[in-house]
Design a protein around this nucleic acid. Sequence first.
DNA 1: TATTGTTATACTCTATAACTATA
DNA 2: TATAGTTATAGAGTATAACAATA
Lengths: 147, 147
Amino acid sequence: MNDVKVTATIAFRLGTLGALVGDRFAERLAVRDLKPKHVGLMALLESGAAASQLDVAKLMHVAPSLLVSLADHLEARGAVKRERDPEDRRKQILALTDQGLALLAECTALARALDAELVDGLSPEEEAGLRKVLRRVAASVGLPTPD
Amino acid sequence: MNDVKVTATIAFRLGTLGALVGDRFAERLAVRDLKPKHVGLMALLESGAAASQLDVAKLMHVAPSLLVSLADHLEARGAVKRERDPEDRRKQILALTDQGLALLAECTALARALDAELVDGLSPEEEAGLRKVLRRVAASVGLPTPD
DNA sequence: TATTGTTATACTCTATAACTATA
DNA sequence: TATAGTTATAGAGTATAACAATA
């Protein structure tokens, strides 16, 4: 009989590893008073994939009410601005400011530093393979992969 | 200048993908009234890596108080049993019952079904590479990898 | 006194529901 | 009436702190 252990499954390992890595990223973002979801929002705006709050909320798989507070927080530090859509004044068009772009770059640097620790001990080929496959899996489950 | 996007980092992708996959796993476990952490606890007991509640809590990176409720839940469904250590009666020795072993096997089957969906579209070599590298990264950040 | 486990409490994150403005 | 966004409220999950039993 096949006795692959549950801890060896991709599902279980992605879950535990994702939680741990997410926590580490969150710790480092905390010094800038940000959370991973703020970074996700900024990245989505930078990619131009969406602009209205509802569209962004759907892509991020979060409730519209949560998006309000994420946007509030980023707006308060000047990283994003909100403008009413002239063609439909119900819509708030979110846009990254220059400050937001700079902040996003700082967060990216933090993530890349974490990456360097995570791939320590892997060969360049293994690292490249991991990046490629993670992207494929992310895309296959419907996550935005604008890279 | 180097403009790798934050969403393309391993850290960000593991975080988002891990959250999504963890949620999917949790959904399927819910029909058995379990959560991923219950599975993690059973797997740890099955591996024999630890037995006292405090040791298990440390390995799982959860608070001792949380371990009490996880163990309570599993004990109530007959999946684990608690026995006082005769040599140190402060310690509760947790052990998986036969029912627990069967329940763990069911959860493993659920995880493997999820795996099949996640690797759909990957070549066997890519899948094997992903498993290998995830295990290496998990081990490098201190996660138990008894496989 | 220190340690193991337990209970009580509080906090963080996020969703659901109610509401406002615009269409 | 329906939709975009906002505010108010509630729930899940987890940690911290206080406590009891044993060492």
